[in-house]
Structures are given as structure tokens and as C-alpha cells.
Amino acid sequence: MAERITRDDVAHVAGLARLELTDEELERFTVQLAAVLDHAADVEALDTAGVAPTAHPLPLVNVLRDDVVRPGLDRDVVLAAAPSVEDDRFRVPPVLGEPS
């Protein structure tokens, strides 16, 4: 099997997804993901010249709703399901760095 994906690639992707993998899992998933990519390569082999790219499997565009308010969820019900709450807000562990 060609080097479709390296162990380092898998470790990087796992890190992005906040997954902690053992060495054994890294090995196993590297092999499995390579097989998935090989399957995608089968599709790549098809002649798609003249086929327009699609962004979605459904033959639909412009699924829209009117800008009208509808009631959502009751705060007390939602917050009751949260692991931790303070001042009517979700309490979360400290975060480092800003994302955007």
C-alpha cells in the first residue's frame, strides 16, 4: 500500500479532534485510514471531464425560511441539563487562546 497517510498525519488529525490515541491505536488507524483513502482513489480514477462539480448530493438550492421569531427553549429546562451553571450561564473550564 502506498504511503497515503503517515502515522504523524493521524496523530495530527487526532490532536485536532482532541482524541488521545495509544501507540497501538495510531498504528491501527493509520492502516485503516489508508484503506479509506485508497477507496477514494478508485473514484478519482473515473473520468469526470465534463461533469460539473456538485456541492451537495440533493438537487436543491435556496432552502430558506422567513425571518419570523418562534419561541425556543425554556432557559431553566436547558440549564438544568448543563453540567455546571452560574448566573444563568453555562459554566465551562478555563480556555486558552482565542479561536477567531
Binding site: 430558506l64 421569531v69 427553549l73 432557559r75 448566573d87 453555562f90
Partner: peptide, 30 residues
């Protein structure tokens, strides 16, 4: 269809879609 408003009481304009609850689906606002 949650209200878009500044300064409301915290977490009063929320629903399964904007809370990312499983099974909820987004529909674009015209």
C-alpha cells in the same frame, strides 16, 4: 427562529439548533 437581540437576559434566545443539540437542522434565514 430564535430572536436576534442585544442585551436580553442570558440564554433566553436559544433552541436546539443554536445549542447544537443532536438531530437539529439549520434552515437559512431569507
Amino acid at each position: 427562529a430564535c430572536r436576534n437581540a442585544f442585551g436580553d437576559e442570558p440564554n433566553t434566545n436559544i433552541c436546539p439548533v443554536c445549542l447544537g443539540l443532536p438531530g437539529s437542522l439549520p434552515v437559512l434565514n431569507r
